[in-house]
Design a protein around this nucleic acid. Structure first.
Lengths: 293, 293
DNA sequence: GAGGAGGTATACGTTCGACGCATGCTGGAG
DNA sequence: CTCCAGCATGCGTCGAACGTATACCTCCTC
């Protein structure tokens, strides 16, 4: 099967013009080179070098073999370079999945920083969720501690804690307060998301209200929730991660008693099987999260 | 240096989808494949396969590696094929050198037969002589036993014996005889070649003539010798190998006593360093010579 | 012409890498 | 819940390739 090393020796012999010189250049001995070439010639059934007094000279077949060998070795080097680009993050792909509020500001900023650091690596924002980590369809998934991530094949890295705000129509009677007492919202219609990612049933809310919230709508679409609030159809709770992405006709106010915080974590493959790009993205995420108060 | 076998294992794994299946296909064991891929991945610093329940699936880098590996293996096969063409005489070059009279009929016929048998092999008629066998500039050199081939690095293969004829002008007074008595030519002017290849001083001629021949011209050019004879400038001796190539205004006649025969041999490199094309040409030469009476 | 220098081929002992076997581990299927 | 398919790893073994030593050859020089 014509091993690569033979080709390397072949080219070196061709360039040096003698087995001895090639052996020196390759940090091996002359007999080793002699045997390599002899084995190669026996393999292909054709003499590749004529043994001349001062060394060796390629035959017609040898010239072809040398050219081919050069091309093949070049191709091999190219292959190594292309793969090395992955290892050195000069190319590649990292697929990120996040819940809606993280996608409003935090994740885009992380992607921006990542792309500055590694311009060659593509970043793709996908919808796989943390379960896709196992299957390899997602490299980094942002989750919260409300997600029941019970797969020990998925590593969790804490990023930050997000707080929650009550989202009111801008003209709501309580919108002028800096802090909204929750019990004042007992009679309001509430908008919930059915999926934990989308801020579903908030634990502790019932107790703070002094009774079960009256659920008027269920909407997983984060933009839709905002729209419903702006239209005066109800109130809801929105994560501070949403940041400045909230539309101006919706007011965000801290609640009293304070709403429970939610931990945001990055779900990634365990270090052993983790992509270099995923590790890099994880670092970007953690450093970015450290900048969040 | 990324050995070929790794690439072979790589593509086999890619095609089978599992280490075990690839191991079967390659008549090796699953652990061996596992180690090969692991070493390859460690070498390039990138995971090439994701380990999935039913086997393995290539990563992005793995896909590139597989494509490259396929291309490189194909190129390697191509190289082997191109070199194999030399071994199987589907291409190549054989350089033949011969003395002038052999070039008139014998060698051209041999080349014709050779080219019929091996259309891909180029045949080149060169002027190196038997000394060029050693240097590799000539593959087969036709020589006679008058050549002092004293190099044991050159093998000699007997081909045939050539006879000699006296060459007379067609209107010569003796041209009508079927056999020319040499002593009748005592007074003639003789044309000799200085080089043995060109029929130089003929041993025994002096004794047959009853005295030293009177040398009028020395001409190494075989055509020139004929022309001189035709012009009536003298007589000479020409090998029967010249055959029908002798011009019609020159008569060839056997001499009495018979002129000494000359052995024609093929000088080639010893079998160890002999080209396949040279061996093939040698066979053609010997079979062709066997047909000569 | 004898000897030295430079180069290749071969014999022999050794070493190191790759393999096979056995085993453990994991994830999905019945 | 058990079984099975498949990958990873430890261990002992074997062989391929290497290095050392040496023979042989050619050319060059004195």
């Amino acid at each position: 099967m014509l091993e690569t090393w033979s080709l390397r020796v072949l080219v070196e012999v061709a360039e040096r013009g003698s087995f001895s010189a090639a052996a020196n250049a390759l940090t091996m001995t002359q007999p080793a080179v002699s045997r390599q070439i002899a084995a190669l010639e026996h393999r292909v059934g054709v003499a590749l070098f004529r043994r001349v007094p001062r060394g060796v000279a390629p035959t017609a077949a040898g010239t072809i073999a040398i050219d081919e060998a050069r091309a093949i070795l070049g191709r091999l080097a190219g292959m190594e370079a292309r793969l090395g680009a992955f290892a050195e993050l000069r190319t590649g792909l990292v697929r990120v999945s996040a819940f809606p509020s993280a996608n409003t500001e935090f994740v885009p900023e992380a992607i921006r920083r990542f792309s500055d650091l590694y311009p060659g690596v593509d970043v793709s924002l996908v919808v796989g969720g943390w379960r896709a980590i196992r299957s390899g369809d997602v490299d980094v998934a942002l989750v919260t501690d409300w997600d029941r991530v019970d797969d020990d094949g998925v590593a969790l890295v804490p990023l930050l804690e997000e707080e929650h705000r009550v989202a009111l129509p801008a003209e709501h009677r309580l919108a002028g307060l800096t802090t909204v007492p929750l019990r004042e919202l007992r009679g309001e219609t509430w908008i919930e998301g059915s999926h934990p990612d989308c801020l579903g049933p908030l634990e502790g809310l019932e107790k703070a209200l002094g009774g079960p919230p009256r659920i008027g709508f269920t909407c997983d679409d984060w933009t839709g929730k905002q729209a419903l609030v702006a239209a005066g159809m109800g109130v809801t709770i929105i994560s501070t991660l949403a940041g400045s992405a909230v539309r101006p006709d919706v007011a965000l106010r801290p609640a009293s008693p304070a709403l429970p915080r939610r931990h945001v974590l990055a779900a990634v493959a365990p270090p052993a099987t983790r992509t270099a790009a995923a590790s890099a993205m994880l670092i970007v995420l953690t450093t970015l999260a450290a900048g969040y108060h």
